[in-house]
Design a protein around this nucleic acid. Structure first.
Lengths: 141, 141
DNA sequence: CGAATAAGTAAGAGTGACCTTACATTACAA
DNA sequence: TTGTAATGTAAGGTCACTCTTACTTATTCG
């Protein structure tokens, strides 16, 4: 089982490797606002967990398992972000950082419920007569 | 600024002192499922933060500041619990533990939004034609 | 090519949260 | 009132996560 931090690092690597073909320790460190050696030891642990591979002085590569896990973690993130930013109408930047923190504390089951809930809610938002219009008016002043 | 753990201990002390007039280290430890000396060092830090007082071999007493902070933390907890248990319809026990974990990662602003949102949602739930009936049917099978 | 710069690694220390084991104090009851 | 059980404290160890400082390997460009 990965710790929250390791999940964070894995997610970051996952996202970085979607937009660039090689991912280095320094890049991850910059992204997460942390010193390079900190990432380093995280990589060692992720390697032990079979999530990434890395040769000496080489780039970080996700294993299939790592890719899958990263995608799943990011999936949770997206759902939370959607709830915070599009339903609660929280400032995107803040929503982003809070989703990051919350994503580790939500069980699978709760997440499924939240997903179903959001599906329903979205219908409410779409229909002009939806019960959420009041909330939106309130928040948007 | 208190760490998540210190917040947890403070909240526990707050709740315990609402139902019993004296709170001891052992009681807190039992409540949180942790060894007594662990609570001990937490108490030292809460004391430094001006949240509790305790004489040598004496009982733990909340300062006014501690009482206020504890109440506030518990308030967050209650809102989250309400959302999880009564809106998402998650099993009470699970809702309880997840609220505990989530409560430290929610900003004040987000919490306010959530509160407003829940108010609106409750109206939806009350009216039989509310947009949430679909969700409830789904979840309750 | 080879020196300068960038990137990665090693070593070691600090902090917070937890534990166990051993010791001190208090409470209570025989 | 004194000895035992309950409670509280001290000491010291582990683990995860972070840092800095110093060293090694790659890359690049003059």
């Amino acid at each position: 089982m990965l710790s929250s931090r390791l999940e964070d690092y894995l997610e970051t690597i996952y996202l970085l490797s979607k937009r660039e073909d090689t991912v280095g320790v320094t890049e991850v460190a910059r992204e997460r606002g942390v010193a390079v050696p900190t990432v380093r030891s995280a990589i060692v642990k992720l390697q032990e967990a079979g999530m990434v591979r890395q040769q000496h002085y080489g780039k970080i590569i996700l294993t299939p398992k790592g890719k899958e896990t990263g995608a799943s973690i990011y999936g949770v993130h997206k759902i939370l972000y959607h709830f915070l930013a599009e339903i609660l109408l929280i400032d995107p930047k803040r929503a982003e950082t809070e989703a990051c923190r919350l994503e580790h504390d939500l069980s699978r089951g709760t997440l499924n419920r939240l997903t179903a809930f959001l599906k329903t809610i979205n219908n409410c938002v779409d229909s002009e007569l939806g019960c959420l219009s009041k909330y939106r008016d309130l928040v948007l002043k």
